[in-house]
Amino acid sequence: MKLSPLARERFTIFMMLFPTFLILVGFYLYPTLYNLELSFTDITLLKLRQGGDPVGLANYTEFLTSSSFFDIAINTVFWLTAISVVCRIILGLGFALLLNSNFLKRMHMTTLARLILLVPWATPPVVAVIAWRWLFDPTHGPINSWLLATGLISDPVAFTANLTTVWPSIVTIIVWNTTPLIGVSLLAALQTVPSDLLEASEIDGANRWQSFRFITLPYLMPTISVLTLMSVIWTFNNFVYVWLTTGAGPGTYTNVLATEVYLKAFVDLRLGYSAAIGVTMAIVMAAFGALYFRFFGLSDMQDKVG
């Protein structure tokens, strides 16, 4: 049987996209729906094969009314996400502005800076955590040795075990590992600010702050918005930084949603309950996603598809 050209083209499209379709359905859509189904059961790791019994919304009500829910929510939203995202945007912006200054540009610092930024950026998160755990280490760590030597402290500080320093320590690790992306992106965005506008504003008597506030910043805003939302989504769901730095401890002091999902599934073996936490996270993230598309419409996507 000979296929018509149209049918042949349809077949070609189908074959080209079929593997992608399998991936999207098999590894994204189906597991997501299956996770939703699991969240309404009491399945545990021990009765994996026979499956769990339906329990309705019990997992959700248990999680949302549990005594730890409030702490986990605050840890995730405030410490893990808000503080670390704000810090990395401000530091990234600061570094980009610094590198964009005439003096440092004249000293040809940009190439050097790109190489410097590369180091934390290319460091895998698992290694970033190791590096900082070493710096923070109370017995061998360079930070404690230095603080002791200068007399600023008289006893070593266990930065990742001490309740007042543990969150700032985790945030430091995340900021160190993620600021380069922000810095490099904003440095690129700074090149799009028209210099004749800045010169005109200066002739008109604007001071530096006014030039920055009313000319540079508006040009940077689209990039900052994209970076912020990307960072929020990515950090909110992040598991490795908290887990590898503190294991959600001391106790459960730094527990976040992502580590709670893992702890409930693989330590308490309650897969159904853990699935409900995952669904809760997905709902919160869907809200963020909606925000993203509301900010930027679908223009970016349409640009790409052409």
């Binding site: 999207l24 859509l29 996770n35 399945i43 769901n237 999902v261 897969l271 699935a275 996270m281």
Partner: peptide
């Protein structure tokens, strides 16, 4: 729809896929 799913897939939180994928 395919392109939208691909955009969404980039931001998909794998932490919530760990349970179902582990069970499967």
């Amino acid at each position: 729809l395919v392109f939208g799913s691909i955009m969404g897939g980039q931001f998909f939180p794998w932490i919530i896929l760990v349970n179902p994928i582990f069970i499967l």
